[in-house]
Amino acid sequence: MNSNTSDNHAIIRKGIYDDLPEMLQLFTATIDEVCKKDYDLQQLEAWKSGAENEERWRQVIRDQYVVVAVIENKIAGFCTLDQGNYIDLLFVHKDFQHRGIATLLYHQIEKEALLNHEKKLMADVSKTARPFFEKMGFHVVQEQTVLVKGIVMTNYKMVKNFII
């Protein structure tokens, strides 16, 4: 994959096993900082606890299509595609919000899905990420109440159908 650069000089590349510690750090810090306007403290703590499931994260790197955005040798964001058509994770570092990183990552994921002849992309999206996904052409199929470590949270099942 050739590395795309934008105004941010972000390099988009495939995620590797060695990226995991930095990805996990970014995951928890982003939830803490970026999502706090949409979820309460208990919800944030429950959500962040997902970082403790090492096996799940190893599986992400092993089984999913993972792309990371790197700026000045730091991971600025990452996105993962599971089973060819499900966006499992999309997180951008709090210091790199609103700089087009999520869009760059998303376009790489969409390109991969289209290469694999997928007809649509799906994602379970937080309140925080919903406006971004809508901007990318997704629509809400249903509002969901999910239990994370016994804590109730709201998210959205969203879909984007490709016109082929």
Rank of each mutant, 00 (worst) to 15 (best):
M1S: 14
N8C: 10
H9T: 02
A10I: 03
I11L: 11
I12L: 12
K14Y: 13
G15N: 06
L20P: 05
M23N: 10
C35Q: 15
C35M: 15
K36N: 15
K36S: 14
Y39T: 03
L44A: 02
A46H: 05
K48F: 05
S49H: 04
G50W: 02
A51D: 03
A51M: 03
E52W: 02
E52D: 15
E54R: 07
E54P: 02
E55Y: 09
Q59A: 13
V60C: 06
R62I: 07
D63R: 08
D63F: 11
Q64E: 15
V68H: 00
A69L: 03
V70F: 01
V70H: 06
I71R: 03
N73L: 00
N73M: 03
F78G: 03
T80I: 04
Q83S: 14
D88Q: 07
L90K: 07
H93Q: 01
K94R: 15
H98S: 14
R99N: 11
G100V: 09
G100T: 10
I101S: 02
I101M: 00
Y106L: 05
I109A: 11
E118Y: 03
E118N: 09
K119Q: 12
K119S: 13
K120Q: 15
L121M: 02
S126M: 05
K127Y: 07
A129C: 08
R130K: 15
F132M: 08
F133W: 09
F133N: 05
F133R: 04
M136W: 05
H139Y: 15
H139V: 14
E143Q: 14
Q144R: 11
V146W: 01
I151D: 04
M153I: 15
N155H: 08
